[in-house]
């Protein structure tokens, strides 16, 4: 028979236990909606099922290079196998690699908005060593999971399509851009021609208007 004294002890121990033990975990709600809560996963395991990271629904205009091609794939070459694009360690075999800095080889990649404006370092997106190639299946930057593993760290709610934003843009007027990002290339040259054409016409036009009016005024004065 448990006495009153024992009961008091048990209650006291339970209360102490509740106070000292870590908080009880809130029951995890089951996510059935289309909203994917990466942040929540990121805090828990950082592990994603394949179906969680691939885009769920496809819309006709939305193509994600490396995952699916929409009606207008951003590049016929964009998702192609490049040199070193499927290695577990993309820098494998490079001499004195541990003595070198990223920007010694990747000069252009240090000049876009993410680096210049937001002051991101390479590691913040590309991670520590070994840096896997983009197309390597387990790379965090593989387009099937880049949005969740990398972009969503800052851009909460990033989708696979969102992650198809080209962070390291090629110079828009270059032949690189023409091959790898034709939309940007043609948009650039269209705007440049529009700008140059407008100014090339209207600046001389204004000049002649001014000159002619000046001369006419003078002639009037002479009379």
């Amino acid at each position: 028979m448990v006495g009153l004294k024992h009961l008091r002890h048990i209650v006291l121990m339970l209360v102490t236990g509740v106070l000292l033990l870590p908080e009880a975990v809130q029951a995890q709600e089951e996510v059935t909606s289309a909203i994917r809560r990466y942040k929540q996963y990121e805090q828990s395991t950082g592990y994603y099922e394949e179906y969680e990271a691939k885009p769920r629904r496809q819309r006709p205009l939305v193509g994600v290079p490396g995952v699916s091609q929409g009606l207008f794939p951003y590049s016929p070459f964009g998702a192609e196998v490049r040199n070193r694009s499927r290695l577990a360690d993309s820098h494998q075999g490079i001499k004195f690699y541990d003595r070198r800095r990223c920007e010694e080889c990747h000069v252009k990649e240090t000049m876009d908005i993410h680096t210049v404006r937001a002051n991101l370092t390479c590691r913040q997106c590309h991670g520590g060593e070994p840096i896997a190639s983009l197309e390597h299946y387990y790379s965090p930057l593989n387009p099937i999971r880049k949005h969740a593993f990398v972009c969503a760290k800052c851009h909460e709610g990033a989708s696979a399509s969102y992650a198809a934003y080209v962070v390291h843009e090629p110079a828009p007027g270059s032949s690189d851009a023409r091959r790898a990002f034709p939309g940007l290339y043609y948009a650039y040259w269209f705007m440049i021609l529009l700008l140059a054409g407008t100014l090339a016409f209207f600046i001389p036009h204004s000049f002649f208007v001014g000159l002619r009016e000046l001369l006419r005024k003078k002639r009037k004065g002479e009379k």
Binding site: L61, H155, S159, Y162, Y165, P172, G183, L184, Y188, M191
Partner: peptide, 23 residues
């Protein structure tokens, strides 16, 4: 950008940025 990338691929934002600035 999130709303845009629901209907257009994310790289359209590169082009939008270029057009906005050039215009």
């Amino acid at each position: 950008p999130f709303w845009t990338s629901q209907y257009l691929p994310g790289w359209s934002l590169n082009i939008a940025g270029l057009l906005h600035r050039a215009e």
